[in-house]
Design a protein around this nucleic acid. Structure first.
Length: 335
DNA sequence: GCCACCGGTGGC
DNA sequence: GCCACCGGTGGC
């Protein structure tokens, strides 16, 4: 059914230990959602690892060099990829429905285009850097929730795969056949009965993906504010212990640099100082660098588009090249 | 009418 | 640049 899908992975860690381990503590249990925004600051209560190493506050704290010290940050990240082209791939556990689209049964034939969906989940061993497939979304979410404090090792996979070790070949490699994106670490598992959905958008859109939470009632919620309202209207969940801290709308970041359309430059909003810096860093580091470092096992540079090729192409085929492309971003197409 | 998907906007 | 929120709307 799904032709394009994405798989999820988690980077382990490495020999570094710069992980700002202390405050990874769990989130606060309050009902108050403060829109602006503890999560962007390094507030301990919301210490979620920013994916964007170029703008990460943590990065400045811990790394002195300014350019490509993403090694440690990368290790705290998760990745999505797309096995699309490879077909089922060598590993048997790449069933597509991990994402459990609710659109499942009556899957309305989106004949016009097929969006990538998460096809599998994978985590990187903190020791050997090999990718290990995670059998279920739930297990993946469980690992992701504590990935910073509890790095993933090949041995961890013995829970579902007897005897596996760093000596075994990787389950996956970044060989250009899949769509990869970096996921955020330490996102709380959804409360029991709730589901966290990740919907990947089409290439060339204004953003990469959306997160939705589906309440036990089936209600779909798409922001912290909606969650807050919903919980206020349904105190029974709160009584069960559901709190705002169990939710995160953080989305992964695609490794293909131009998967998401760039937004036209807005001078008014530029911070004099830090924008130019960011831009340089961004352009220079080129999207894929996160993973490049600290991954001795990966020989292929991942800064080039091939990782996304299959999906891009299939998307392009299905996409109507109409309006979205028309108001192009040529202005800021810097790279 | 619903809702999944997408774009726009404002903030940082 | 990223992130969050939310309105619009095409396809059902």
């Amino acid at each position: 059914m799904e032709q394009d899908h994405l798989d999820l992975a988690t980077l382990g860690k490495t020999d570094h230990n710069d992980i700002h381990g202390s405050s990874v503590a769990s989130h606060r249990d309050n009902m108050k959602y403060e829109p602006k925004d503890l999560r962007n600051s390094a507030h301990p209560a919301f210490n979620q690892n920013p994916i964007d190493v170029t703008s990460s506050p943590e990065r400045e704290d811990h790394s002195t060099d300014d350019e490509d010290n993403q090694g440690e940050d990368a290790q705290k990240q998760l990745v999505l990829y797309d096995p699309a082209a490879v077909g089922a791939g060598e590993i048997e556990l790449v069933p597509d429905p991990l994402d459990s689209q609710p659109r499942g049964n009556s899957f309305p034939n989106y004949t016009s285009r097929i969006l990538p969906a998460v096809g599998a989940f994978t985590v990187q061993c903190a020791n050997c850097f090999k990718w290990r497939l995670i059998p279920t979304k739930e297990k993946y979410e469980e690992i992701r929730e504590h990935i910073l404090e509890q790095p993933f090792y090949c041995e961890t996979a013995r829970e579902w795969r007897a005897g596996v070790s760093c000596d075994d070949p990787p389950d996956l490699t970044q060989d250009g056949s899949r769509l990869w994106a970096i996921d955020k670490p330490n996102i709380a598992q959804p409360p029991p009965g709730w589901e966290r959905l990740l919907r990947i958008r089409g290439e060339g859109g204004t953003r990469f993906a959306d997160v939705y939470y589906v309440a036990p009632s089936g209600k779909r919620l798409r922001s912290m504010i909606e969650i807050q309202k919903y919980l206020q209207e349904h105190p029974e969940y709160v009584a069960e212990g559901v709190s705002m801290s169990r939710f995160s709308f953080q989305i992964p970041r695609p490794l293909q640099e131009n998967y998401v359309r760039k937004r036209p430059y807005r001078p008014a909003l530029a911070h004099d100082e830090d924008d130019p810096v960011k831009r340089i860093a961004w352009i220079g580091s080129d999207g894929g660098t996160d993973l490049r470092l600290g991954m001795p096992g990966l020989s292929a540079p991942i800064d080039r588009a091939p990782l996304f090729e299959s999906v891009s192409q299939s998307l392009k085929k299905k996409r109507t090249p109409s309006k979205r492309m028309s108001n192009t971003d040529a202005a800021c197409k810097s790279s």
